[in-house]
Design a protein around this nucleic acid. Structure first.
Lengths: 248, 248
DNA sequence: CGTGGAGCTTTGTCCGGACATAATCTGCTA
DNA sequence: TAGCAGATTATGTCCGGACAAAGCTCCACG
C-alpha cells in the first residue's frame, strides 16, 4: 500500500516525507515511546528510496522528535518540536559588551563573607568567602561607563594585580587558570536613578537615569563562581542582543 | 595527489574528513571568505566518495564554519566553532516578559509610511507602509507597566479588534495567521528619563528613570515584520535572562 | 559600454547497492 | 528456568550514478 506524499509547494521529497511523519507523530501515530515504522517499511509505504527516508528521519531527529538506534529502530521521543529563539554569545565578554580596553580599575578590594544586603540584592544565600572588587570601568582618558562591584568566590579568585590587567571577564580567567568554567549565567537588567555615592566616581549627576545589570555566574555543579553588579549612566551604554529563530 | 585521512580513533571516514577540513580552516587554509575546494576536488584529494565529502561538509555547515551555495561553491565563514553561551526562549512572548494578562490597550492607531524620526530611532530605512499602534500595557486595574509603540508592516497587520484581544506578541499572531514567522529579532535595552509626554499615561513622574526596550523583528528574507519601542518606569520592570553554556 | 542570454560549474536531490555494527530474538544447554 | 550463543533485524557507513537547480562567466548585440 503506497501513500502519495502531499507536496503542493514543490519542496524536496525528503522534506515532504518529514512533514508527513511529523504530522503523524503530532497526531499520536505513533505515540511517544512507540516505534516508527522501519526505514524499509517507510520506503515501501511512501514509494521513495532509502536515501530519502534517511534524510527525512535525520530532520526529525535534529528536531528532537525521534531517536534512532541501530538494530532496535526509531522511537518517538516528543510529539512536537517547539520553535524557539536563541541568542548565541561567543563568551562572557560578548555578554558584557564592553570594549576590550575598557578595563576595570579597582578602587577598593576586600575579602570576607557575603553580607546580607548584597546577598539580598542578588537573591542568593549569605555567607561564603568572597573577594570583593569595587571599581570603575572605562577606557583610559575617557569618562567611565560603569561602576562595578564584583564578588568572586575566594578560593578561585585571581590576585589583584591580575585583575588590574584584565580587559575582559574575570570568569574567563577563572575558566582557563582555575579550570572552573562558567556553565550558567543569570542576568537581570533594570533602570534606576543614580545615588549620590554612585554618581561621584562616574562623573555623573545624582538622580540621573542609569542602566543596572546584575549577573550571577554558576559552575557546572550549580555553585556560585562570581556575582557582579554594574551601573551605567543612561546615555553611555545600550545593551544590544540578537535572537535567531532556531531551525527545527 | 591523494591525502590519507588520519583516523586513529576508528571514527567514520566522513568524521575524519570533517576534522581534517576543520583543522585546515583553523590554520587559515582556506581563510575566512575564501572558497573550500569543490566537492569533486575533495573526493580526489582525500580518496573518498562524494557521499562522504557531503556528509563531512554537512557537519562543518552545522558547526557554522562554512556556507554552501549551489553553483558557487563552499565559502568559509568562521575559522573556529567557538564555545558559546545560549539563551533559549520558547517564543517571542518569553522575550517580552510580560504576564499573559498584561494586554496592550491601544490609545491611538494610524497607518502610513514610517517617518524619519522613528526610522532613525530604530536605525532602519524610512518609508514602507506600517500600521502604528500606540498604547499602554498592564494588567486590568493595575498601574501600567509599559508605554509601547508598535509599527507593524501594513500588508500583514492584524485588525485593531484582534490587537485588543492579544495578550502576547503580535508577531506570534502574524506567524500563525499570515504564515510569516519571525526569524530574527534585534533588541536593544537602555535607560533614560521619562519625558512629560511619556510619564502621563504611565502615572509616573517626568524625569523618572525608565528602562527602554526597542525591538526589530525580521522575517526569513530579512524583511521587517514589525518594530516596537517600549518604555517602563524603573521599578515596575526588570529584564531577566538566563544563559547556558552549550556543549559542543 | 552595458545588458541579456547561453553554456559551464557547483551544489542539491534522489535512486540503487553493499557491507558493518548494534540491538533484539530465539533456541539450546546446563 | 536462566544464561549464552548464534541468527535475524534495523540502522549506520560508504560506494556509484543521474538529473535538477542555482550561480558564475563569457560572448554577442544594441
Amino acid at each position: 500500500m503506497t501513500v502519495m506524499l502531499e507536496n503542493a509547494s514543490g519542496a524536496p521529497r525528503y522534506m515532504a516525507l518529514a512533514e508527513a511523519l511529523r504530522a503523524r507523530i503530532a497526531g499520536g501515530d505513533p505515540a511517544i515511546g512507540e516505534l516508527l515504522p522501519t526505514e524499509h517499511a517507510l520506503c515501501e509505504t511512501y514509494g521513495v528510496s532509502r536515501h530519502t527516508v534517511r534524510e527525512a528521519l535525520r530532520l526529525l531527529a535534529e528536531a528532537g522528535l525521534i531517536a534512532r538506534r541501530r538494530g532496535a529502530g526509531t522511537v518517538v521521543v516528543a510529539a512536537e518540536a517547539r520553535a524557539h529563539f536563541t541568542q548565541r554569545l561567543g563568551g562572557v565578554d560578548d555578554l558584557m559588551q564592553y570594549a576590550r580596553d575598557a578595563k576595570l580599575q579597582p578602587r577598593h578590594t576586600r575579602s570576607g563573607p557575603l553580607d546580607a544586603a548584597v546577598a539580598r540584592a542578588f537573591g542568593v544565600a549569605t555567607g561564603g568567602e568572597f573577594f570583593h572588587v569595587a571599581g570603575v570601568r572605562g577606557r583610559p582618558g575617557e569618562t567611565p561607563i560603569a561602576l562595578t562591584d564584583v564578588y568572586i568566590r575566594a578560593d578561585i579568585a585571581p590576585p589583584v594585580e591580575t585583575i588590574v590587567e584584565m580587559g575582559g571577564s574575570v570568569t574567563e580567567w577563572i575558566a582557563s587558570e582555575r579550570g572552573v568554567p562558567t556553565a550558567r549565567i543569570e542576568q537581570s537588567i533594570s533602570a534606576g536613578a543614580l545615588t549620590e555615592r554612585e554618581a561621584e566616581p562616574l562623573d555623573a549627576e545624582p538622580g540621573e537615569a542609569a542602566l543596572r545589570t546584575r549577573r550571577r555566574y554558576y559552575d557546572k555543579g550549580g555553585r556560585i563562581i562570581a556575582l557582579s553588579d554594574s551601573v551605567h549612566p543612561g546615555e553611555r551604554f545600550t545593551y544590544d542582543m540578537v535572537l535567531m529563530r532556531e531551525a527545527e
